[in-house]
Design a protein around this nucleic acid. Structure first.
Length: 962
RNA sequence: GCCCGGGUGGCGGAAUGGCAUACGCGGAGGACUUAAAAUCCUCUGUCCGAAAGGACUUGUGGGUUCGAGUCCCACCCCGGGCACCA
């Protein structure tokens, strides 16, 4: 066992003394900002999941440093906010005191990881020197019109006793404590993130982020193109405006539905004959939790606004108006046109309340864009559709059935003992006399639907299977004249068929609304729609919208960021409300009389020490009970005024921390404004040099939280001229989740692994190696206590080899070049597990190859250094090399030597392995053939057989086809 | 329901369309040892076979290809995200 604790202590000290992880922030030539999402500290300390993420990030940083970059790898604590406060509440401590305890413990643990952190630049979000600037950012948001206050239905966590942003509600539950979230109407501060919706979406194309995260953000932003269409309310001057993405279905809109909170309802109180009932429904809907709304799921509720009628602008029909809570107040206009034939929710609602359903679109059944529904086939009722493609003329055979006087591919069912495919072939033969069929494609679609023939509504529900054949030749067997007499056979041109899908334009299979089952949501061809009949949905959409007086718009699902929190442990929102000014309509901004931002020079608004900091649950922060805090003077008129007592969301703290790190030791810049110079929270020169961040690593769970807010903030800073980029992180990678023996680690299960005991028992390097070896970093892995022994053995062997006498060589062993290449590439791709496996392969060779020597070993140490920084450094020193290995150059490989001069030629017969021969790299087919014949087994296989074909892939394989 | 991942030995996991199971854990046997631990060596996908050898094998079923874990179609299962967004 190598003496890890002595070695680690020694180097930890030396590294700090020599500041090898502190780049020159002002003068660095090749800056590389390697950032890791900073942790929020609970006093329970770092858990092995954090360790996993931090170590993974550090390996990348160390690799970049050795590759010649000036790497900056800062660390800090996200210790302000609800997570830390909840923890303090739980253990009965005061967050302000607890912060200091946690800080000490966390930094001690972070030190022990052996990461190359730049300790001079650490920051804590609860430090007044930090949150002064968080508040400053709030003030700038306010000054630039991005912060506003509004009364609205908001998410409320009854357990955390605060409001939450939409992003913090996960499936109807509080992101922090898992309690069901309810809706409350409160006046709150918001950030206008929606202003950036389109930019947030468009920029995704430009950044190197995992597809998974981009998709999550895309969905969250939820852009939809549609139209606003007004429905006049009969006998009033009001128009109900709806947003729809499907104006092509407007002729099928048979009623309107408003959200319960729709403002029109109170305006039209006098016209609504059943207003009491309506009010009661609105009251009930407001009380429901998110969870109740979801749990009720499909069971729709609603009330008709009796006495009101609206006019469908397309059909001019009078249609009823309802309210229902399946319509969301905050999206679109809070009202929808209901098209029950083409929308699942409207369909259900119409079924329940017996409202008219009118189909106006028929989708093609075989359209690739509209894959059929799943279900179990009913073989007895299988209907087989046989389509035959002309081999040369690009035409398709369809069968004309006299029974139906319209083109339909309907054939019979399956006979006794016959497979569906056999039945199809038989059918084709009986109908056409064509025999030589080759199955091109089978569509075993087993959906339940009715068929619609273009001019007739027809047929019955069936299950369907479609076979698509190609004729091998055109010879027609005249065997069944009787059948062909009965049915005409016709070749239809396939001109319209696009390449993608051989049946995309088959004209006669059209899905029909099944009145008993469900809506037809696919797009298709419009009918029952006056002059628009026959157009496709895509063609008809905007024409119909225009016809009805609507206008095209884009809608986003994204809503503004609710920033206030009714909690104690956070930066007080730096705003002041003056009643006197408000009464006069005065204020800093016209739209919000009475409100003033705290002047920049007066920041920070310090969070006072409050003994009883527990959340109140009244909709106000505990600060509202501290007179000394909230009593102040109006910055404009000097009258008695009141401070805002809510604090800001913790995600605002983390939305800008990365900008602060490199400027911590420098002077803040000042920005010229119209009237004065404005101090900003960072140094422009340094910021220019170090941003955007080169590599950011963190958890994927922040896909639509931190990772969205931080992008929004950067865009705002850019627009205010504070920074010159708008995407903060060029490259982001999400680390995987560490589980234990197949199950999630959680405190309640008691299977949380703490890194400390393993570091104590085996050393930091061993833990690092094991963590990084157990699975691909981005995928996450399965921790098993027993598995660490592999890492222990590996490092012990390295240590032993380091103690042994190694031969001095002139040059590197040639086989090492391939390994250097592989490890270099694997680290770049974050494939740490395969890098380590290759290090193991190298070690095996160093131990067994007699020619391996000191030079090889030193290269091995360099390759090992990012993973096991302590041992690599120690052995580097004892090998007589200069301090520090971590500042040494990453080994280069010779391209010519990457692969050996010989290779193993694989000999296959009919694709099966029959032999291997060692051969020189450049041999041709003839030589390879000779070598293959030299193999007795191969010779046996080939003797007396005719070789039809030889496939020879140089440098790899020779395959005989017999 | 929709959108992402993923399914490979006893386990964690490797494999630019070309030797499936690298590397490691575990297991078996052996060496060293009074003994154990540690260490080192050999073997270790399944089935048939005494062996030589053969057959089978990457969730299931089809397809493309000289050749498929890898590409295409359909299905099943697991994990994650979103979820009445009109």
């Amino acid at each position: 066992m190598y003496p890890f604790s002595k070695i680690e202590k020694k180097w930890r000290k030396r590294w700090l003394e020599k500041a090898i992880y502190e780049p020159n922030l002002k003068k660095a030539k090749k800056p590389f900002y390697n950032l890791m999402m900073f942790p929020y500290p609970s006093a329970e300390g770092l858990h092995v999941g954090n360790t996993y993420a931090f170590v993974g990030s550090d390996i990348y940083g160390r690799f970049k440093r050795m590759s010649g970059h000036d790497v900056f790898e800062p660390i800090g604590l996200d210790g302000f906010g609800i997570h830390s406060e909840n923890y303090a509440l739980k253990i009965g401590a005061h967050p302000m005191k607890q912060a200091k305890v946690s800080e000490k413990n966390f930094y001690r643990q972070l030190q022990s990881l052996g990461n190359g952190f730049a300790w001079n630049e650490h920051l804590e979000t609860y430090d007044p020197d930090y949150y002064r600037w968080t508040q400053w950012i709030f003030v700038q948001m306010w000054r630039n019109g991005l912060a506003y206050r509004k009364k609205q239905l908001v998410n409320w966590c009854p357990s955390c006793k605060t409001v939450l942003s939409d992003e913090q509600v996960i499936s109807g539950e509080c992101e922090r404590c898992g309690t069901k979230v309810i809706k409350r109407e409160l006046e709150q501060w918001f950030f206008r993130i929606t202003k950036y919706a389109d930019r947030l979406l468009r920029n995704l194309e430009k950044i190197d982020w995992p597809e998974k995260i981009k998709i999550a953000q895309t969905n969250w932003i939820g852009k939809s193109e549609g139209a606003l269409i007004g429905f006049p309310v009969l006998e009033t001057e009001f128009k109900i405006e709806v947003f729809t993405t499907r104006p092509d279905t407007l002729f099928g809109a048979t009623y309107l539905v408003l959200a319960p909170e729709h403002p029109l309802i109170s305006n039209l109180e006098s016209k609504i004959s059943n207003f009491k009932e309506v009010e009661k429904y609105i009251g009930r809907a407001a009380k429901k939790t998110e969870e109740e709304r979801v749990a009720e799921g499909k069971e729709k509720t609603g009330v008709e606004l009796k006495g009101l009628k609206a006019i469908n602008p397309a059909t001019k029909e009078e249609i009823p108006v309802w309210i229902a809570d399946y319509v969301i107040g905050g999206y679109g206009t809070g009202a929808v046109m209901a098209v029950p034939a083409h929308d699942e929710r409207d369909f259900e609602f119409a079924k329940k309340f017996d409202l008219p359903i009118r189909q106006v679109v028929m989708p093609r059944l075989l359209d690739p864009a509209n894959p059929p529904r799943k279900g179990k086939p009913d073989t007895k009722r299988d209907i087989i559709h046989c389509l035959v493609k002309h081999p040369k003329e690009n035409k398709i055979i369809v069968l004309r059935s006299k029974k139906l006087d319209w083109l339909t591919p309907v054939t019979g069912g399956i006979e006794e003992g016959e497979s569906a495919l056999e039945a199809a072939k038989r059918e084709i033969y009986e109908e056409t006399g064509y025999k030589n069929l080759r199955l091109l494609k089978e569509y075993p679609w087993t959906f339940h639907a009715e068929f619609y023939a273009a001019h007739k509504d027809v047929n019955r529900a069936v299950h369907s299977r479609v076979f698509y054949f190609e004729l091998k030749n055109l010879e027609r067997d005249e065997i069944s004249p009787k059948e062909t007499e009965k049915h005409d056979v016709e070749w239809l041109p396939l001109a319209k068929l696009h390449d993608l899908h051989p049946m995309a334009e088959v004209p006669f299979l059209v899905k029909w609304l099944d009145q008993g089952e469900s809506a037809v949501v696919e797009e298709g061809v419009v009918f029952n729609s006056g002059k628009f009949d026959g157009l496709t949905s895509a063609e008809a959409k905007w024409d119909i919208a225009k016809f009805a007086g609507g206008k095209r718009t884009t809608n986003y699902r994204l809503r503004d960021w609710l920033i206030s929190r009714q909690r104690y442990w956070g930066p007080p929102i730096p705003m002041i409300y003056c009643e006197a000014c408000a009464a006069k309509g005065k204020g800093e901004r016209k739209d919000m009389p009475g409100w003033y931002a705290v002047k920049e020079k007066d920041l920070p608004v310090k969070l006072p020490m409050v003994k009883d900091f527990k959340p109140l649950g009244t909709g106000q922060s505990p600060l509202a009970t501290v007179k000394l805090f909230y009593e102040t003077k109006c910055p404009a008129c000097g009258a008695k005024a009141r401070r805002e007592t809510d604090v800001s969301d913790t995600f605002l703290d983390s939305a800008w921390y990365y900008l602060r790190y490199p400027s911590l030791g420098a002077k803040n810049s000042r920005l010229e404004t119209k009237n004065s110079k404005l101090e900003i929270p960072w140094n422009q020169e340094i910021t220019k040099k170090w941003f955007p961040v080169d590599m950011y690593i963190g958890g994927a769970e922040h896909a639509v939280l931190h990772l969205l807010y931080v992008r929004f903030a950067a865009m705002a800073f850019k627009d205010w001229g504070l920074i010159s980029f708008e995407e903060p992180f060029k490259k982001f990678r999400a680390h995987g989740l560490l589980i234990k023996e197949g199950r999630k680690m959680s405190k309640s299960k008691g299977n949380v692994v703490r890194p400390d005991e393993f570091i104590e028992k085996y050393g930091t390097d061993t833990l690092r190696i094991y963590l990084m070896f157990l699975a691909p970093f981005e995928q996450g892995g399965d921790w098993r206590d027993a598995g660490i022994i592999g890492a222990v053995r590996f490092l012990n062997r390295v240590w032993k080899l380091g103690q042994s006498r190694l031969v001095r060589q002139k040059s590197l062993s040639p086989w090492l070049h391939g390994s250097i290449k592989k490890i270099t590439e694997d680290i770049s791709a974050l494939h740490y597990n395969t890098s380590i496996s290759e290090l193991m392969v190298v070690l095996n060779k160093l131990e067994s190859e007699p020619a391996a020597g000191r030079k090889d070993f030193e290269v091995f140490l360099l390759l090992l250094a990012p993973f096991a920084p302590f041992m690599a450094e120690e052995l580097w020193e004892s090998s007589g090399r200069r301090f520090s290995i971590h500042k040494s150059s990453w080994p280069e490989y010779d391209k010519k030597l990457v692969s050996a001069p010989t290779f193993e030629l694989i000999v296959q017969i009919n694709g099966r392995l029959r032999g291997k021969v060692t051969a020189a790299k450049g041999i041709g087919e003839a030589e390879a053939k000779k070598l293959a014949y030299g193999q007795p087994a191969v010779k046996d296989y080939l003797s007396g057989k005719e070789i039809k074909k030889i496939i020879f892939i140089p440098g790899k394989i020779i395959n005989f086809v017999i």
